[in-house]
Write a protein that binds this DNA or RNA. Sequence first.
DNA 1: ACGTAAATAT
DNA 2: AATATTTACG
Length: 656
Amino acid sequence: MAENQKGSSDFMDEDGGDRFPVGMRVLAVDDDRTCLKVLENMLRSCQYHVTTTTNSIKALEMLRMNRNKFDLVISDVKMPDMDGFKLLELVGLEMDLPVIMLSGHKDKELVMKGVIHGACDYLLKPVRIEELQNIWQHVVRKKIDRKDHNKTSASIEETSNMAGEGSHGIGSENNSDQIIKVDRKRKEQSEEREEDDDDDNRAEDEEPSSQKKPRLVWDAELHRKFVDAVNRLGLDNAVPKKILDLMNVEGLTRENVASHLQKFRLGLRKATQQGNQVATAFGGVSDPYLQMGSADGYRDFCTPYGSRRISSTTLPSYASGGIYCGLNSPSGSTIGGIGSSLAQWRQAQSQNTTNPINLVRNYQLSMFSANQSSSLLPGTPTSVDLNRFQQSNCTTGIRQVSPFDNSNGFTLPSAFPDHKPAIGKTNNSLFGLSSNHLLFQGNLVPPTHNSGAFRNHSSLGSSPVNTETFDTGISSSSNVSEYNERWQSTAQLSNFPSNSLPLNEAFDSNQLPHNSVKFSSSTSHIGNSPADFSSISDNAVPLEDALGELNCQGGLLGNIIQQQRWEDHKQDYSENMSNTFNSENSLSFPNGHNSYLGHSLNQNNTVDASLVGQMNDARMKLNDACILQQMTSQEGLDQGNFAYLDDIISEMNKQV
DNA sequence: ACGTAAATAT
DNA sequence: AATATTTACG
């Protein structure tokens, strides 16, 4: 009756309860073929789905191989190779399935042994069908026990899920909480499945009595909490348990956190490593972009939706591009702002992360290295690191849940309720970035003068945008509007789901708050490309985020980032920078949409490879600088470390 | 309780 | 095939 299977999977559910015993999947084990046959027939008559085998070892293999494919095991006690007790023991250990022992002897000892080993019942041989008709109760009992256990051990929030048992316990509905469900043990699986007497295969229904823990997905919100917790604890004290407490997420287990922490640290490590590599190649490598892409394991860098990449072979070094990373100057009012406590920063961060846009960005941005972080402040992960991790996630995250893909049930608006700017302005002052803007200056960037340049242009649907203009390399004298148009289109094309809200609108510079980090690049006069590209993501983005932003923009548009503060020192570092900053004509560029540009670019072979190379450099340097900046801020060593920053800048200048 | 590595799931 | 998560273990 393989047909009944269907029902068996639901039998536990409220609704499926009606037919429950019918189709219950039973594995009968007995070395005595005759007895087995008899048993089988009786079980069948009870409407159970029966699978039989005369070999206990084989039985175990079958169970291991078909986890969740059996609801109950009924086994003879005395068997060669492996007796029923052993089987019982292993089953109990590995799959927590109800096991009924069968024996021709009623020795108290044996019965006791069976019970001790976890047998849920001990039947004496000859078994009467009446006895078998009720064995399903053990399945139910088991299930109930498990349920209770879970509830006590970890507050499983989804009682409903529990009821459903087999259902998946992750309520992704509310981004904030995840639910973990029943746990089970998993084991190795031997791959062979053998003959048995009759059928054995099952369709893969889901929830018999044993099942694995549902996979927890670390969505942005959850991760945000995680990062927040880690931040609060400090990387050194951030241990699973503490993090778990801080996160305060129902159903989340320490293991979950530990696991995530593991990955997190790994990401951190990689990041730093990568950073070092980059540092090494600082002046030479022409295509760090690609290197990073494959070297650090973060594939699809900036191209979460696409796979096309720019060929490294076509990446000549970029001569005219340069990067100026003038994080806030060591002097100036900003510094005062920097005084904000880490706590504040954290708050800001969390707030920020809460922002839909940021979230999106996080998902999209790729992570970049921050080499110096470790060397400068050993053991003191910087927020950049954390961010980096987040970013790394985005790459993969996108795969699972695209923030832009409504089909995933991931809804930006609802998922990220507005948070009151408890810290308001403080928010951005974190790293002295408050009220400062990161200026993006690049010679390759298209000129823009309309603040609304990046607004949605629905017309762009899905058709490929002409991006020949991206070939700008250095020449680019194409007219501004055209550029804008293209950028817009391109960006949009890949960025905004047709039905999504025009995030752009939200970021219209006009509507943006002041204290946010901004990226603005204005006409660049460096080299000979009068290109001008300015973007402002004015959304109270903490440095961390700003970094991400920069990474993307810098990487894609390849250019220079500068903070307003930079002005103070621009002369010292670069003449080119002068008067290149005007955040006025800048257009708002929605956070996180930069990567799309990259994507678009990638899709166009027309992109000037050199640009990419340069962008990478820029990005990396920017990173370094930012990190430094960050560290400085955190450590209050602004002045002291500034020298370093200078170096970085000088380095960048050289390139230019 | 931790952290790391192996096992699995996607 | 590469990652992300879950488990097993010391």
